[in-house]
Design a protein around this nucleic acid. Sequence first.
DNA 1: TAACATACATACTTGTCGGTATGTTGGGCG
DNA 2: CGCCCAACATACCGACAAGTATGTATGTTA
Lengths: 212, 212
Amino acid sequence: MLGGRQTKRRVRDPERTRERLLQAAFREVHRSGFRSAGIDKILAATNVTKGALYHHFESKEALGYAVVEEVIAELVRERWLRPMLGGGQPINILTGIVRRLPVRPQDIRESCPLLNLAQEMSPLDEQFRKRLERVFLAWQEGIAALLRKGQSQGTVRRDLNPEQTAGFLVAMVEGYASLAKVAQDPKVWEAGIGNIVGWLRSLRAPRSQGKG
Amino acid sequence: MLGGRQTKRRVRDPERTRERLLQAAFREVHRSGFRSAGIDKILAATNVTKGALYHHFESKEALGYAVVEEVIAELVRERWLRPMLGGGQPINILTGIVRRLPVRPQDIRESCPLLNLAQEMSPLDEQFRKRLERVFLAWQEGIAALLRKGQSQGTVRRDLNPEQTAGFLVAMVEGYASLAKVAQDPKVWEAGIGNIVGWLRSLRAPRSQGKG
DNA sequence: TAACATACATACTTGTCGGTATGTTGGGCG
DNA sequence: CGCCCAACATACCGACAAGTATGTATGTTA
């Protein structure tokens, strides 16, 4: 019992407080967009007071930047980059990732958090833009690296440019996410996933097209 | 001189006032998004007073709806639907349209007005969403009709679903517009156009693939 | 030309929301 | 034990922007 664990719920736990604020801010920003996101909403959702929030973050903008760098970037790593580390054929890995993307009505409605913030804030705030661009680049670069690996393995067509192809995939994912958001219809998103998967198949090297 | 022309600049010209407000509102909304668009900015840009604006539009929302239905919908008709009316092979028409899309840094920065508004307002305001969805549907349906025409002419592959393919095209255009907006780089957009044009080529019916 | 409705002008109100000034408490450490 | 700073809490402020109340001018119509 002596020397209790770090994870025990303490009255004061700044790291935990900060993390809870980040998560609540992410949700609120995801729902309403950054500018319409209310500080008070975030506070209400966390039972944290304004003084505490402004102790951890200089301003609403600083909170937003932290959401991009710590929450949204982590989401991309979790959903896209980490699944790439395992073995298997690159095209199969990508197909699996795309098939596992969220399809709940709520997810459709709120669309991709990265895209939303980028759409809203890129032209308005250069600080936001740079951070968001970094996340996009990491995403694309991860896909490109995976495609290159496939090319050297001989399972991916050698006549395609990995960076360009990665950009194409990202553009399609985000494009369909947008359409689904306006249509508010999971079918639009599912049709999009189907098309993307079909396109991914066309990236296979001819010799490996028949393989599972 | 008697019975002068309707188009002569009169001191009072409600239609012209309304139209100027719509155009200024469109520009302001395109720049800043709907919620950050300032009524006062619109007024300053038009030298119209608040009383006049609220005489023509019930609320900021009503002004926004009118922008969608009268300005943005018209933009889609002008850029996409009208060019489809001329003769020529559907794939060539589509390629031409895509190649003629704006590429100025300002256009990249501000991206597609339809997409911007849809991204921002779809989850927040059902009235907006419905109007924006109508524009998207008209756009997609126009493309689909053109593809069907191509299929019956024998210049477009018969194994593809026109609606699905139209959705794919729209998703790619909007997806690349998003990426270019974040990157703030015309090259991203130009690369996207190149990829889209390349993809469009793959829609030709085999017999007509060699034709100009 | 007098009346009346449309078209516009000006000044004010009101609510929202990010931010801050200032106070209080917990807990590590000498 | 008691100092002291980080970690919070509370109450308030000021700016801004949408909307409105109310007034004025224009032009059409009887």
